[in-house]
């Protein structure tokens, strides 16, 4: 016999529309919580960085410094935003009991988690795009200023050929706006995505937003020590079994955030290898999948 209940209810295994509803809700929540105010702080900082004036340094050196500092600041803002914004989501929903009303609707817990993560990722991407635009505008402005000054100076000097002026202009341009810088911004996004999913994982068992933030920052910092651990602890303590074991456990369990810092090299002019960038994209996908799976394993059995 078919009951009324069975005929009425059809709930898909996974509903992208519910995920998107939670993601857009998350975006609205974070925007209205004024978390985007940090972009104003960033704009002020970028303006301040643009005014760095090292009298004894050359134009090329000054432009390079401005570029490194502004892109470095962008990277910090992106991962810090990823931690803070993500940490405000699940623990806060739990503290405010909003989670009860959401999970008492026909919403699967995986949909809730993916929705939250998606919302944060979209916001990180949007904020990075804004910060990147700000950086480029400032860099382009400074670059044109430096080039004009250099041409004026060289034209006034004796025995300077047009070819030499062109060479100097090219040197400045090499430190200015280049298409590779977009890949540096992408690198910051990949890093922030892994940071966000790690924070989601921590928040599934954390008791508060503050605990989530502190723990995530802690893991983020030590996640940069992979290279150091390999170089010092593993190679220089070859005889010490315990340290070797601990190092391996550390490497297996904690994400290698240092690997995601490849924006640094690109910003200082390294050549971009597209295959490597693609591989980093797939690696990020791997982290997102596995960390989300573990988050679900915790969240699925969590009692509220």
């Amino acid at each position: 016999m078919t009951t009324f209940t069975e005929t009425r209810i059809k709930i898909p295994m996974f509903s992208p529309s519910r995920v998107w509803t939670i993601a857009t809700g998350t975006m609205t929540q974070l925007v209205r919580m004024k978390t985007f105010y940090f972009l104003l702080v960033f704009a002020v900082l970028v303006a301040a960085i643009g005014n760095i004036d090292i009298k004894s340094a050359s134009s090329v050196s000054q432009l390079e410094t401005i570029k490194k500092v502004s892109f470095g600041t962008m990277d910090i803002f992106a991962w810090l935003y990823a931690i803070v914004a993500t940490a405000l989501l699940i623990p806060r929903d739990l503290e405010d009991r909003t989670l009860y009303t959401i999970l008492s609707k026909p919403v699967r817990r995986i949909e809730y988690l993916i929705g939250k993560l998606l919302g944060v990722l979209v916001l990180i991407a949007a904020s990075l795009a804004l910060m990147f635009t700000l950086c480029l505008l400032m860099l382009a402005y400074k670059q044109s200023g430096f080039i004009a000054d250099e041409i004026k100076m060289l034209q006034a000097a004796p025995n300077v050929t047009t070819a030499e002026i062109e060479e100097q202009v090219k040197l400045i341009q090499r430190q200015g706006v280049r298409p590779e810088l977009a890949v540096a911004a992408l690198a910051s996004f990949l890093k922030s995505s892994v940071v966000a999913v790690m924070t989601i994982l921590i928040s599934t068992f954390a008791s508060s937003s503050l605990f989530t933030i502190i723990t995530s920052i802690f893991f983020f910092l030590i996640g940069h020590a992979h290279g150091m651990m390999t170089d010092f602890w593993l190679h220089k303590t070859e005889g010490n079994l315990i340290i070797r074991m601990l190092t391996k456990v550390f490497k297996l369990l904690i994400p290698d955030f240092q690997l995601f810092s490849f924006s640094e090299g690109i910003v200082i002019g390294a050549e971009v290898v597209p295959r490597v960038v693609w591989s980093m994209g797939f690696l990020t996908g791997g982290y997102l999948f596995v960390f989300l799976l573990i988050s679900l394993m915790i969240f699925l059995y969590k009692e509220f």
Partner: peptide, 17 residues
Amino acid sequence: IKARSEIGFLPENPYFY
């Protein structure tokens, strides 16, 4: 999850967004 589409819930002192 099917059971939940039949339920409406109002928690104590609700804090919605």
